[in-house]
């Protein structure tokens, strides 16, 4: 991928002759790489590199609920935590820890995982999903939730389906998928969504900008189409992690000789 983009970007540059600022068509996603099992200690983990975003997710649990009075006798509770590292942006050093934005995102991410995890299989427990943005370039919440989904599957937590995050947006009159930071800041609308591909359920929907009914309807169709690509990468990550384990057999066999 390209290095730092330092040049000043104007709104008029965002969409010209059918192409976006980085040469993509409206339906194109940025390069996406998903790796499962990147941390040793966590029960499940995942690194999502999406354009210039790098987001890591880790899962612990199910474990005893702390504080105890929060325990739910009918299901596991989800503790979702989305934070941005203070060095993750191109701007000045951010403040460590959660802020109002990340608290809100943690809340809607929690709702996503409450739906996707078969929480009733683990009453009175807690499942932690930590999502840390190490480098940000637009669309970090959908990258984080996409990573969290893979980390949950990697941890062996039962899921109805793996949630897929993807954002749609509007630049001038054009609807596009997967906005980068410039498109998010200078474009006319950003619509992060999380869906369950199997049922087509919408688990997260936030938006800013002014959108007509038709815009939103078309955005959904684009999201469902684009989400297939993200789902494929999630599966590929889990498959690769499995193959990596299987491949270790021979090398270990050799060192044991």
């Amino acid at each position: 991928m390209a290095g730092k983009v330092n040049k000043m970007v104007e709104k008029a540059d965002l969409f010209k002759n059918g192409k976006r600022i980085d040469g993509r068509t409206p339906m194109d996603l940025r390069p996406l790489k998903i790796t499962a099992g990147v941390l040793d200690r966590a029960q499940g983990s995942c690194l999502v590199e999406w354009g210039r975003n790098k987001v890591i997710a880790a899962v612990y649990g199910p474990h005893e609920v702390l504080p105890k009075h929060l325990a739910d006798p009918t299901k596991a509770i989800i503790n979702a935590r989305y934070v941005m590292a203070p060095f993750s942006g191109q701007e000045e050093h951010g403040r460590s820890g959660p802020n109002r934005r990340s608290i809100e995102i943690s809340k809607v991410a929690k709702h996503v995982f409450e739906n996707a995890v078969l929480v009733e299989q683990f009453p009175k427990t807690m499942i932690d999903v930590h999502m840390e943005v190490l480098q940000s370039d637009g669309g970090t919440r959908v990258a984080g939730i996409t990573a969290g989904a893979v980390a949950l599957a990697d941890a062996g937590i039962p899921l109805r389906d793996m949630p897929v995050g993807l954002s749609a947006g509007k630049i001038g009159e054009t609807l596009v998928l997967d906005l980068d930071k410039y498109e998010d800041n200078l474009g006319d609308s950003d619509m992060p969504f999380v869906i369950l591909p199997r049922t087509g359920e919408i688990l997260l929907s936030q938006m800013d900008g002014m959108l007509s009914r038709e815009d939103i309807s078309q955005a959904f169709d684009m999201i469902f189409e684009g989400a297939k690509k993200v789902r494929d990468k999630q599966i590929e990550a889990l498959k690769t992690s499995y193959e990596r384990m299987a491949a270790q057999v021979t090398t270990q066999g050799e060192t044991n000789q």
Binding site: G44, P62, L118, Q121, F122, A153, D154, A155, G156, I157, P158, L159, R160, D161, R198, L238, Y242
Partner: peptide
């Protein structure tokens, strides 16, 4: 019936790769 876990499926059975004891 749908898979909830990553699992290895052979002709007659399905074995999940990771799980939790209940």
């Amino acid at each position: 019936t749908f898979a909830s876990n990553v699992a290895l499926r052979s002709d007659d059975h399905i074995v999940q790769l990771k799980g939790y004891y209940v």
